[in-house]
Design a protein around this nucleic acid. Structure first.
Length: 256
DNA sequence: AATTCAAACAACCGCATTCGC
DNA sequence: TGCGAATGCGGTTGTTTGAAT
């Protein structure tokens, strides 16, 4: 496959924008076989892309539940406030906006919010001030527990994609809920959440995506075989396979 | 109508982290 | 315990689009 750039020059298929056909292939493959190994999946799915590229495309655009565009005023405020607290930890900020991706938030920040942030830093009560008022020094770099704790507002099902319930072969969940921390940062976070929740980050905004039904209706998957390579036995063996708790209503996905 | 330029968005790259062997 | 592989994150670059001239 050969793509062309804006100048009409030929470009290798492994770079550049994703075509609808490539999207379709990736979605259909993941529907059918799940996510088992990003590095080897492209070849198996018949895609001339790197595993990284496939992962990025899936995580940022193709997986169900992604919200695109139209950031609300509440979204803006949420991003601004969490950015003030967390800095450029886009994935952590994205965790506070279900359906939004770190990449989209990052881009949106640079395009729209950066200036506002500079303007607003002197106004109102900031998260930094809240933290300061807790009389506990928070060093973002030196407080490994705080980011994890900030992300701990939703349960993690084992071996599932942290946002969509897609079966994962990935080793670790984002949060290990079995490990109870006694990190004093937890108190700070509680304080922040308490002060913060009165405004834009209401509980409903924090409704974890884990609780939301997972629908494939937007995927428009072709039922015919798209020319995939079925994962080999060795491929399957390395993954924990599919979660039994997953409510797969009439799903034929993951296992044929 | 053509050109220029900046904003917005999409994708890539390098590095850090984590896991399994 | 060390190493390689896989994954995730954040910064950066490339491309598109639309407004201004």
């Amino acid at each position: 496959m050969v793509n062309t750039n804006s100048y009409g020059e030929k470009m290798p298929a492994s770079r550049g924008f994703w075509s609808p056909e490539e999207d379709q292939k990736l979605k259909a493959y993941i529907k059918r076989y799940g996510i088992w190994n990003w590095c080897r999946m492209p070849e198996a799915a018949g895609l001339a892309r790197s595993g990284k590229s496939c992962r990025l495309r899936w995580m940022n655009y193709l997986r169900p539940g992604i919200k695109r565009g139209n950031f609300s005023q509440e979204d803006d405020e949420t991003i601004l406030k969490w950015h003030e607290l967390l800095g450029n930890r886009w994935s952590a900020i994205a965790a506070k906006l279900p359906g939004r991706t770190d990449n989209e938030i990052k881009n949106y920040w640079h395009a729209h919010l950066k200036k506002r942030s500079k303007i607003n830093t002197s106004s109102s009560t900031t998260i930094s001030e809240i933290v300061k008022s807790s009389e506990v020094e928070v060093n973002k770099k030196d407080s490994p527990g705080i980011q994890d704790l900030l992300l701990c507002d939703a349960p993690i099902l084992p071996n599932m994609d942290a946002t969509e319930g897609i079966p994962m072969s990935t080793q670790m969940p984002i949060n290990d809920i079995s490990s109870s921390r006694t990190d004093p940062a937890a108190e700070i976070v509680q304080h922040i959440e308490k002060n913060f929740s009165s405004s834009e980050t209401s509980d409903q905004n924090f409704l974890s995506i884990w609780e939301q039904p997972f629908l494939f209706q937007d995927m428009c998957i072709l039922e015919t075989d798209a020319g995939f390579m079925v994962p080999t036995t060795a491929m399957w063996l390395q993954e924990p396979m599919y979660p039994y708790v997953y409510l797969d209503t009439g799903y034929d996905l993951w296992i044929d």
